[in-house]
């Protein structure tokens, strides 16, 4: 089984801890004077998203997690699963609620997403950083008001609610930053 020594630790590295795959968020090498060295890490449980502190003896080996990020095209949802396709092999995978999480607000058919696989099963779905979506419902726009900086809620086709400037109209397509859930610009 593949393993990593603490000397190879760096942020992003995927390791197994207590039976769950974790990603290293931060690694700090500490060594007092002439003594034993330690790696103090913060690791994120990839199943639960929880971040915990974990200390290792320097030189200790930790099992590698068979975790792989792949780029896949989002196809559709049947209400229970979200279906993705590998664009090169055309192989399809279904991801459940746990893996998709809040990403479902930003999944648009045919968009390329990052699907993190653990032992070949979808673990996390990450939407593209920016998506373009159509507004299905919002208050009528205030024409010409491009300067006051006020916002109003707008409902997207996926159910997401985004704060948009007052001049945006229902039916318009807007660009959203999925990492913050914020409106970026109008798409013409």
């Amino acid at each position: 089984m593949a393993s990593y020594s603490t000397n190879e630790f760096k942020s992003g590295l995927k390791i197994m801890l207590d039976g769950d795959p974790h990603a290293i968020v931060e690694n700090e090498f500490v060594k007092p004077g002439k003594g034993q060295a330690f790696s103090r890490t913060r690791v994120r449980n990839l199943k639960t998203g929880r971040v915990v502190e974990k200390t290792f003896k320097s030189g200790e080996s930790v099992e590698a997690a068979d975790v792989m990020d792949t780029s896949m095209q989002y196809l559709y949802t049947d209400g229970e699963f979200w279906h993705f396709m590998d664009p090169t092999t055309f192989e399809q995978l279904a991801a459940g609620k746990e893996a998709v999480g809040d990403a479902h607000f930003w999944l648009k058919e045919q968009d390329d997403c990052e699907v993190t696989l653990w032992n070949g099963e979808p673990l996390i779905v990450t939407p593209p950083n920016f998506v373009e979506m159509k507004i299905t419902e919002t208050d009528p726009g205030l024409r010409g008001d491009t300067a006051t900086g006020g916002t109003k809620p707008a409902h997207m086709e996926t159910g997401a609610v985004v704060k948009v400037p007052l001049f945006i109209e229902e039916g318009e397509v807007i660009k959203i930053d999925t990492r913050s859930g914020e409106y970026v610009s109008r798409v013409k």
């Binding site: 060594k31 007092p32 004077g33 003594g35 034993q36 330690f38 915990v52 502190e53 200390t55 003896k57």
Partner: peptide, 26 residues
């Protein structure tokens, strides 16, 4: 001090002191 500890009873006492020094005392 909420320091997660990777050592066991088999580790030399000095290693415990090293961890205490690095994570709590210093």
């Amino acid at each position: 001090h909420t320091v997660d500890c990777p050592l066991s009873a088999n580790d030399p006492l000095d290693h415990w002191f090293d961890l205490l020094m690095s994570t709590v005392v210093a």
